[in-house]
Design a protein around this nucleic acid. Sequence first.
DNA 1: GCAAAACTTGACTGTCTGGTCAAAAGCGAG
DNA 2: CTCGCTTTTGACCAGACAGTCAAGTTTTGC
Lengths: 227, 227
Amino acid sequence: MDRSSSLTLSTAKAPAKGRSRIQTIKRKAICDAALEVFAAEGYRGASVERIAERANMSKTNLLYYFPTKEDVYREVLEQTVEGWLEPFEAIAADGEPVEELRRYITVKLAMSADNPEGSRLFSNEIQRGAPLMLEFLETRLKTLVDDKCAIIRRWIDEKRLAPIDPYHLIFTIWATTQHYADFEVQIGAIMGAQAGKPGFQDQAAHAVLSIILNGIRPKDEPFGTAL
Amino acid sequence: MDRSSSLTLSTAKAPAKGRSRIQTIKRKAICDAALEVFAAEGYRGASVERIAERANMSKTNLLYYFPTKEDVYREVLEQTVEGWLEPFEAIAADGEPVEELRRYITVKLAMSADNPEGSRLFSNEIQRGAPLMLEFLETRLKTLVDDKCAIIRRWIDEKRLAPIDPYHLIFTIWATTQHYADFEVQIGAIMGAQAGKPGFQDQAAHAVLSIILNGIRPKDEPFGTAL
DNA sequence: GCAAAACTTGACTGTCTGGTCAAAAGCGAG
DNA sequence: CTCGCTTTTGACCAGACAGTCAAGTTTTGC
């Protein structure tokens, strides 16, 4: 297996240089279609033909805009991940700890609800072993997480948060927020029609916030662990 | 796409009837290999050839034991899910609420750590839209979850647990326990060598238990939500 | 020891799919 | 109108892959 070049995902925004009007429109259409198909079928399961079909063009035409299937995949994955970093970066050391985390969790849950396909796309990439994202995870994301963990640790030292390992706290947040997108089908099967109703998202957010925020609120009595 | 017959997964144990000694050995070898390959590559990405290779037999030979790729997949998926139900079923109404949930979370985390491939296999199936499992999810699993939620709700009414929607509590537990298996690569990339060390699993378990259990412990002061 | 049953194999088929190619169709500037 | 560029298309190719088949080999029951 060739170590195909990884995602760009540099901090600087690519200027989307020299695109004709039609290029912009078509590439957008392709990315929209590709997100749906990749999220639903996975990288291997998705065929260029199906993506082209959903974007209302011929396969050959699609391959005129993106030379290979992987190029389409990389583009849409990049766009998705880029959007997720902002709210995480926004966690501010000088804010009220619980409030900062509440905001982050809320935004992340909303993003999962608004764009479950993006969530599934990402999930799929990681589960395949992150062939295109490993470098990004190990460098830029790791640095970012390390920074935020330092902030959280400081909050803990100042007794403004219960003593929870910051890494695992972040993983717990990511786990729950992703779950509502990735396991939509399971949740739907179990909760029936209720899962589709408008209030459902708020209900989920309330429960998740309730559990996690109460779980990390500073306490006088320390948590008696069974370990 | 033909609505292929769904999983068996009835309550009664299949007796594994009339298998010759060699059948038993070979089928086991195939399932072991298939679990690895399906978990790593997904259903579509896995090829019968690769599974056969890893099971040290020819593709044709494998197809002698399981007529189709889907048959292998169904078998190994079934085995995996079956094992997960036990600890969930074991949540007992007459136990101490926090203790019951602590036990369930601990066991589930250990299962994710011991058999991450199974976790990824399941995850993959759900994300594909649960083509083989939807019926199971909507019937047997739904009933089981409804039962446990009734128990949890009773605990809440008795003030032995904070007022959290039981469904979302269960989803939160499932989310976190799965995450450590499904996103192993991401966790490894962020935490580096630390993620592989022996103590890591306990550390993760401690943090998750700490967050969730403190999050659901009964409180006098109600949780002030921002919603 | 031997016939029948169980098991194993390589050669093969039809289908799907990512990607190429060369030719055609639109289209904008002078 | 027309020349040169971008866009679009259908025909085609090579490789992968699930599954078949018929012919072999091994094991088992007697």
